[in-house]
Design a binder for these strands. Structure first.
Length: 187
DNA sequence: TGTCCGATATCCT
DNA sequence: GGATATCGGACAT
């Protein structure tokens, strides 16, 4: 692989649905103990606006946990579910607008075993991501950032996972984007 | 394919 | 103080 260019603010400040399609195929780089862990993003979900019943920001709610979702595009929103799994999100759009992308799976590129980064909890585990990255700026960080990849990928979309509680409308809306036929997309 | 459940931060009453 | 959560692994069916 040939990582080219670190993605800058203007990549992330576009609307979440635009960034979601564009981010597929991009590289995510984590520097951990002097080693680079690299994955290619193959699956994300969009959580968009205060109207999204599946979003932690539904109704414009702001809490100590979800405030990073409102940061200008390019910041990390990370939180724990079920007491043991971390969920890594990237804020998108302008400051003050609650929208983000949940990274659900990456394809191993460097420093990873086969399929160990498929699934949002597993991705965080192998990329060594936790609360210490809360609010981290991906355009400034020395330990976590994204790089461009000129390769074009074929994109498919479908309903988001695990949000039946949000009711039939929001549970069915196709805001999960993934690379067509890629074996590293979560099952 | 389905169900069970871990282990706890966070939100709400 | 109690309920719940953007999951994943294990094991039965």
């Amino acid at each position: 692989m040939k990582p080219t260019k670190k993605l800058s603010r203007s990549f992330y400040t576009r609307p979440a649905l635009t960034v979601a399609r564009d981010i597929l195929g991009k590289y995510i780089i984590r520097v951990y103990r002097g080693r680079k862990i690299i994955g290619k993003i193959v699956e994300v979900e969009v959580y968009y606006s205060a109207k999204d019943r599946a979003s932690h920001a539904f109704g414009g709610k702001v809490t100590e946990r979800n405030r990073a979702e409102y940061l200008v595009g390019g910041h990390v929103y990370i939180y724990l579910v079920y007491g043991l799994h971390w969920q890594f999100n990237i804020s998108t759009g302008p400051e003050g607008h609650p929208e983000c992308l949940l990274v659900r799976a990456v394809e191993p590129v460097q420093g990873l075993r086969d399929r160990e980064a498929s699934g949002p909890g597993k991705f965080c585990k192998v990329f060594k991501l936790n609360k210490s990255f809360y609010g981290e700026d991906l355009t400034e960080s020395k330990s976590l950032w994204l790089e461009d990849n000129p390769e074009k990928v074929k994109i498919k979309k479908g309903p988001r996972i695990g949000i039946d509680y949000a009711g039939p409308h929001w549970a069915k809306i196709p805001w999960r984007f993934f690379v067509k036929d890629n074996p590293y997309v979560s099952k």
